[in-house]
């Protein structure tokens, strides 16, 4: 890790993606995308539905290969990898966070977090220790034995983040991670992402909510399969936001107490 100003970790060069090539239902989802992301950046990809941002996310996540162009990720050429090699890359370099959490049901938080290490062939002892460490990092050290249906949405997403982090990935990919969460929990998750970004992990986030994109240090806007805007900025700090909100709610609580006391006195 060389920090926020380090070398290029992700490099897309003139990437095209065409679905159903050669048929009548041909869809040109990506039309020549060239982007470089350096280590430690917090990038938000924005766009309306149908803009191609999901396709871009799938390519970045090594779930799919580009039709043409090249994609370098952490020194590997992804465009010509086999399915097995793609799986290996996902396991070793990437961590995924999904909108609907995608935890295995009826499986404990600890076992969910262990999953990526199972496919890496780690021994049970190592897996347990690292999964525990990862859950503690997201603040769920006390709930390791709980199954997803015993956890709140925010807690489930934190288990998913712990799962994404357990393999010590270089890139964390989050696809609408706050889409199913209320605003306070969303801010908490974004605070966690920012904390991870500060520790050197590259975060790439897909969202359609502008107030979520505010927490990123760089915003890419995709439209009709091309990048129409690429802007670096100073991010809003989610931790400050949380402080403000809790102060605000403290003020409201104090106001309520005061009103109540006045009412009592008047009686």
């Amino acid at each position: 890790m060389t920090g926020a100003t380090g070398d290029t970790l992700i490099e897309l060069r003139d990437v095209h993606k065409i679905y159903g090539q050669g048929t009548e239902a041909e869809v040109h989802a990506l039309r020549g995308i060239t982007v470089a992301i350096t280590r430690g950046e917090f990038v938000a990809i924005m766009g309306t539905s149908g803009s191609g941002k999901s396709t871009l996310m799938n390519l970045l996540g090594c779930l799919d290969r580009p039709t043409s162009g090249s994609y370098h990720l952490a020194g590997r050429e992804i465009a010509r990898m086999s399915k097995g090699e793609l799986a290996e890359t996902r396991n070793e370099v990437l961590g995924f966070v999904f909108q609907n959490f995608n935890l295995l049901s009826r499986t404990s938080a600890l076992e969910n977090v262990e999953l990526p290490l199972i496919y890496r062939g780690e021994k049970s002892k190592v897996r347990k220790a690292r999964a525990k460490e990862s859950l503690e990092r997201v603040g769920l050290g006390q709930r390791m034995g709980h199954t997803p249906n015993q956890l709140s949405g925010g807690q489930q997403q934190r288990v998913a983040i712990a799962r994404a982090l357990v393999g010590k990935p270089e890139v964390l990919l989050a696809d609408e991670p706050t889409g199913n969460l209320d605003s306070r929990t969303s801010t908490e998750v974004m605070a966690l992402f920012q904390e991870l970004g500060e520790s050197g992990i590259t975060v790439v986030l897909v969202t359609h909510e502008p107030d979520i994109a505010e927490y990123a240090s760089r915003v890419l806007v995709v439209k009709d399969g091309v990048v129409v805007s690429d802007e670096r900025k100073t991010p809003k700090r989610a931790a400050d936001e949380l402080d403000r909100v809790s102060q605000g709610s403290a003020a409201i609580a104090a106001q309520l107490a005061r009103t109540k006391a006045e009412a009592e006195a008047a009686r």
């Binding site: 399915k83 097995g84 996902r90 995608n102 496919y119 799962r163 393999g167």
Partner: peptide
């Protein structure tokens, strides 16, 4: 799908 995303090979 989840298992594959997390690195399960075919």
């Amino acid at each position: 799908g989840v298992r594959m995303a997390l690195g399960a090979k075919p």
